[in-house]
């Protein structure tokens, strides 16, 4: 069963279904492991509609579909008939000190109804204040005050949406001087306080660890696996002294290793590959999805 009872992809067996069961921490809500999916991008529409490729699900950027009555929704409706569709946002601005945008939430809720979403994800960040939107995922101070502010808003948002909010750890390029805790402590406390979920972006863990000098392996070791609903994987751009999360390349080996660590520690979780810039042909992104499925096999043999 896919998200909201959407049918399993018609192409047959799920990409990850050949793996054996492993010792795993179930997520708090009992959300199923949907397998391996990819971001739905316009350049791939025709390939998908002509070939109905074997993908366990697609994830959409909700802002590309909310409020549109044109081709985006038409395409989404066709694809949602055949695949589970996960909703991922970039404009919720959960950490902003501006008022919560309920018009945004209303449109998001409409979209959730269209694909029968059981959760919706966005980022631990803020995108703007004072009525402006930078359209960037700006970092939250990791302080007690910031925590209380975000927790209060997460509760309000979940009350409105009536499904769990699943927050993603962002890639960050700076740390606030006022920070009082690690990002994983902040997220663990936030998920416990608000009952929200965690989208553990493995590439973002790597990017931020590189930029700030902490251990990515420790991050994954310390995160509360029960709250992890799914994973993102993507490529990035390494500029030597820092990394930018560009989503424009293959996943690097170090990130695959961290993903394997996640699997060994937490167990199977819905996993999707993001490729958002210089998007290659469908088959190239699909190959990364298949590689993610392969990552689970060594862990199976170890457990078995």
């Amino acid at each position: 069963m896919g998200v909201g009872g959407a049918p399993i992809p018609p192409a047959g067996q799920k990409l990850g279904s050949e793996q054996a069961s492993v010792m795993s921490i179930p997520n708090k809500w009992g959300f199923p492991d949907l397998g391996f999916g990819m971001g739905l991008r316009t350049v791939h529409y025709s390939h998908i509609l002509q070939n109905w490729p074997k993908v366990d699900f697609f994830e959409i950027i909700v802002e590309n579909y909310m409020g549109s009555g044109g081709r985006p929704i038409y395409m989404l409706e066709q694809i949602a008939e055949r695949y589970p569709v996960l909703l991922h946002g970039v404009s919720l601005s959960v950490g902003s000190t501006d008022p919560v945008d309920f018009e945004y939430l209303r449109l998001l809720k409409n979209l959730m109804g269209l694909v029968k979403a059981r959760w919706v994800s966005d980022h631990l960040c803020w995108t703007g204040i004072l009525g402006r939107n930078t359209h960037d995922l700006l970092p939250m101070p990791l302080t007690q005050e910031s925590f209380e502010h975000v927790a209060r808003r997460v509760k309000v948002i979940q009350d409105f949406l009536e499904v769990p909010l699943v927050l993603e750890n962002p890639s960050t390029y700076l740390e606030w001087a006022q920070d009082q805790m690690t990002e994983w402590d902040f997220l663990n406390a936030l998920t416990a306080e608000t009952d929200c979920g965690l989208l553990l972006d493995v590439n973002n863990v790597y990017v931020s660890s590189y930029n700030h000098g902490f251990s990515a392996a420790e991050y994954i070791e310390k995160i509360n696996g029960e709250r992890v609903v799914y994973h993102h994987l993507s490529g990035h751009t390494n500029n030597g002294t820092y990394i930018v999360d560009t989503h424009d390349d293959h996943v690097i080996d170090e990130v695959w290793a961290l993903y394997t660590q996640c699997y060994q520690r937490i167990g199977g979780r819905t996993t999707m590959v993001e490729w958002d810039a210089e998007i290659p042909p469908f088959e190239v992104v699909h190959a990364e999805v298949l590689k993610a499925a392969q990552c689970r096999k060594p862990a199976v043999s170890k457990v078995g």
Binding site: G4, G5, G30, V100, R118, V156, Q158, V163, P164, C196
Partner: peptide, 24 residues
């Protein structure tokens, strides 16, 4: 896992609309 069980397990689902008090 059934969809409805998951939704009903989310303890934060209390108010159908945001209350002003929640934002204060």
């Amino acid at each position: 896992m059934a969809e409805r069980e998951v939704v009903s397990n989310a303890k934060a689902i209390v108010l159908p609309q945001p209350s002003p008090a929640a934002l204060a």
